[in-house]
Amino acid sequence: MGHTGMPQASELTPASLIAQALSNPVNAELLQRLDSLRLPQCHLTAGCLFQAVWNRQTGRAPDWGVKDYDVFYFDATDLSWEAEDRVIRAVQALTADLRVAVEVKNQARVHLWYRNRFQADYPQLTRTTDGIDRYLIACTCVGIDTRSRALYAPNGLDELQRGILRMNPRFAQPAMFRDKARSYQERWPWLSIV
């Protein structure tokens, strides 16, 4: 254990994060299958990736605590709910046998529904990674491009490895941040909220 009670681990790199995420067989399957749909700017993102890192550091299975698997894509050619719903249904059909919740979101549409759901403004985005950039907690801004398999991590990986939960300055929502950070700390008590 480190000085904060955090488990020690070798340095987290883009390659090691991808390897840890893919040690969850559902992530590996999703990357394989989603590529076949050719969704524009498609990324597997959020907890299914970064929680594998925290789970490895605490000796848990890579999928422990994963509530759902987030898939972001960006298609501004049709901003209707019907178009997004067709993609959601296609992904559900493609992944039904995995028996996990897969949450699909067209990042080109988020600004249309966000205020009604979360009582906060949300700008119109211009690409998938804009959505990843706006996670509440800075270290959780990670995604893997389903086509190139490249890691997107605009805030680096140091705080993710060290378990530092800091409010993302790109989307400062103090109350929502506190709730999200506390929910992570309940599952991984060694995480520190700053």
Rank of each mutant, 00 (worst) to 15 (best):
M1W: 06
T4S: 08
T4A: 06
S16D: 11
S16H: 14
S23Y: 02
P25A: 11
A28M: 13
R33K: 04
R33G: 08
L34E: 12
D35N: 13
D35W: 05
L37Q: 10
R38Y: 09
L39R: 05
Q41F: 04
H43K: 05
L44C: 15
L44G: 02
T45W: 11
G47Q: 10
L49W: 14
A52F: 05
R56P: 07
R56G: 10
A61R: 01
P62Y: 03
W64F: 10
V66M: 01
Y69Q: 00
V71E: 04
D75V: 09
D78I: 09
L79R: 09
L79N: 12
R86G: 05
V87G: 05
Q92H: 15
A93K: 15
D97W: 13
V102T: 02
Q107D: 13
R109L: 03
V110T: 09
H111S: 07
L112S: 11
L112N: 13
L112H: 00
W113F: 14
Y114V: 01
R115S: 03
D121W: 07
R127F: 03
T128Y: 10
C139N: 12
G143A: 09
D145W: 02
Y152D: 00
A153T: 09
N155A: 13
G156M: 14
E159S: 07
R162C: 12
I164L: 00
L165T: 01
M167C: 06
N168E: 08
P169F: 11
R170Y: 00
A172F: 03
Q173K: 14
Q173E: 14
A175L: 12
F177H: 01
R182H: 08
R182T: 03
E186V: 07
E186N: 12
R187H: 00
P189M: 06
L191R: 10
S192N: 09
S192K: 15
V194I: 05
